[in-house]
Amino acid sequence: MAIAWWQILLLTALAFWMIIDQITVGILCNYPLLIGLVAGIIMGDMSKGLVVGATLQLMVLGVGTYGGSSMPDFMTGAIVGTAYAVITGKGTNFAIGLAVPVGLLMVQLDVLARFINTYFLHRVDKYIEADDVPKVARNVVYGVFPWGLSRAIPVFIMLIVGNQFVQKIVEVMPQWLSNGLSTAGGILPVVGIAILLRFLPTKRFIAYLIIGFLAATYLKVPMLGVALMGLAMAIIFYHQSGNSSHNQGNNQENKPKETENELGEYEN
């Protein structure tokens, strides 16, 4: 299926709004799942968008933008991936195989946007000296454009070019590579889970990790049920720790301290 021009425009607008949403209200676009859902609705195939978004979601579970670090932009990946999944009809795992490199490359543009905003900062400095309050305010708001365009322009280009280009790739792709991409799509959530476990004080709460695992595998409790079970245990924990709060100090030492890496993808 070919992509219609209005779909390209809507997805480009979604890409612009997505990053603004992330840094302001945080309703729709903090994470790939909801973006995938919206992109799926725009492309006329909600469940494909959901599956692409959900897989990418699991990859970024433990990855956050703390202290201004950039993270792989799998929200943009979800938009492009969903569009490609519907265009090619090749299944979602193929699309995820494409969305991952897109997300990784987009980090560079995130850095660029944050860098360009420094220019507006210096203009703000200048207008403070002149006590020109309206111009100070205006220059802060201009920051919208580096942010929004850093997502919208690449998405627009990838959709325009991708329309024919991706179809060609699909035609010449060997079977083993499609199998490989499909397997990669299946195991990529491992990364998000591992990062998350590194971020959380897992060693201290390892018993609960095992309980969650047992409930899902042996007892076949659905996810919402496990979450409720976790909630019950959390309430018990909260009340009990209130009685012995003087012991809490010792436990804090178990928290991992080495959560920052040299590229600063995630830090505590």
């Binding site: 959380l200 969650g212 899902a216 496990v226 979450a227 976790g230 245990m233």
Partner: peptide, 12 residues
């Protein structure tokens, strides 16, 4: 955090 860890256990 406890709740989160439990959910992750089931997620794997």
């Amino acid at each position: 955090v406890l709740l989160g860890v439990t959910v992750v256990g089931a997620l794997i």
